[in-house]
Write a protein that binds this DNA or RNA. Sequence first.
RNA 1: CGGGGUGUAGCGUAGCCCGGUUAGCGCGCCUGCUUUGGGAGCAGGAGGUCGCAGGUUCAACUCCUGCCACCCCGACCA
Length: 563
Amino acid sequence: MRFSKTFIPTLKEVPGDAVIPSHILMIRAGLTRMLSAGIYSFLPIGYKLIRKISDVIREEMNAIGGQEFHLPALNPKEIWEQTGRVEAFGDTLFHIKNRDYVLAPTHEEIMAFHAKGALKSYKELPQIWYQIQTKFRNEPRPRSGVIRGRQFLMKDAYSFDVDFDGLDKSYEAHDQAYRKIFVRCGLKYFIVGASSGAMGGSKSEEFMLKSDAGEDTVAYCSKCGYAANVEVASSIIEPIKREEKSKEIYEISTPNVKSIDELCEFLKINEIQCAKSRIYIHDNVPVLILMQGNEEVNENKLNSFLGGTVRPAHPDELKEITGADAGSIGPVGIKMRIIADLKLKDRNNLFSGANKNDYHIGGIDFTRDVKNIEYADLRFAQSGEKCGRCNSKLEVFKAIELGHIFKLGTKYSESLGVRYLDEHGQDHPIVMGSYGIGVERILACFIEQNYDEKGILWNEHLSPFDLHLVGLNLKNNETKNAAENIYKELTQKGYDILYDDRLDETAGVKFNDADLIGIPIQIIVGEKNLKEQSVEVKIRETGERIKIKLDELKNKIAELLKK
RNA sequence: CGGGGUGUAGCGUAGCCCGGUUAGCGCGCCUGCUUUGGGAGCAGGAGGUCGCAGGUUCAACUCCUGCCACCCCGACCA
């Protein structure tokens, strides 16, 4: 493809709205342009990459028997009402104003609608149906470029089976296909078991990728592969030992001390010696939660420990319940259920609030002064702590969700009446699975993992072109002829080439654009080397430049691209 | 939805606090000449509802009010 005839609007400067590397580079390298918040246009090179990624997905989906559909984005609202998801999605669902349609945020309903009455016999099952299409979600806050948009491309697949054993097989097939897809796209991913949230259903796995632009925080063990959202992740921690001698309990006047930081500063103590108090309301009953001073309550863990409904107490409730405001609450003498994090188990000589504003208590011994105290794991796992499974070190970091597979079960087939007859003529709901991949996310995440200060670093897994041919001063006829010949010959050999044939751009501009766009191999044709019948081959990632005789170029390229 | 920030030419920005030239600069773009191995030089040129609406004023990019858009943090999140 000739650069001079292709729309590749590269940008020298960082666009004001972009913050994360992939977003900046996708705009600077001319892959995408923003139309509105969370709505992006893909320009020719960007769209070419989207097609390449889609093709990988398509191949792996077809390999497990998937059949590709093309479904409407415009859906009758009625179908979504039948499954209760108009309400479930709430404001996230886009509604059409002048007709009772919604813009599909996903396609369980529509696939199930087509399956209904069409898949009637056990003989027709199982089926895997998928599509690669645009979804619409009215995200309250789009961010990170293409990573969370209001309109985005998703591959979503649905499996239809006679029973849960069949579903297990379909699920397993997708699991394997997904691994292949992400490996083929060159992504360093990991898998997190997760709850399936608003989608309904039981088992699920998320395919995730480490990134500062991520929206989830996960704990990951690179040794055994344990990965879990920090909301549920557990870790092995070293217990903190009791001090040898328990001091007497004593009250301290602490005027205007509200936070743990202020308390530590005021008393010249370490936050590890503090028991931080939080009041939660559990099924309308207050509970005191105690955390070590430097840690926060993991409300998710608290929730699953207590069951029922749990919420933090409002500031105005605190005084009524404890007699003090936040910052002066503590376990000594308080009459309610008390649960402390395991890090505080049986500790002594602790500091906490006195349940009296502007006073704290020191010398607290949980075994002596706080009767009926319960202990539970209520903290967030942190980097460096030991993995609960294999004892090596956990890492905690932000991650982006690339794909999600889950066992839906019969939620949609029940509510929409998607049923089949078994060999005895008995009728059953079809058992479904649902499997999604964010297509643009693959592109953005690849860039998040492969860039340097000059631009993107495509590789053998993913690249818009095989080769970037840079013709320097093309007003020089010899150079032009040589470049044109190389372009012709290598194209005939089957290579996909971006040929920078721009007449007026200087060498520097072309070099920088080539580095920005980031095709792995550059062939540079210039007067200097042509005098020796040579051109230069530059490896984008390493910056290595190799001088090659013209007649050896084809072999060298073949060798480089074979890897 | 809460907190913070920004909106000036295709892109990046100065000016605004403290109202008063023709709204300035860099990049990009157009024309000509020179240049061509790491974002070229000279000369000339085009391009602006200063986010929108209202208000104050002799006078508004600048002050006030409302709205909108975009970004960041949080809440939310298949």
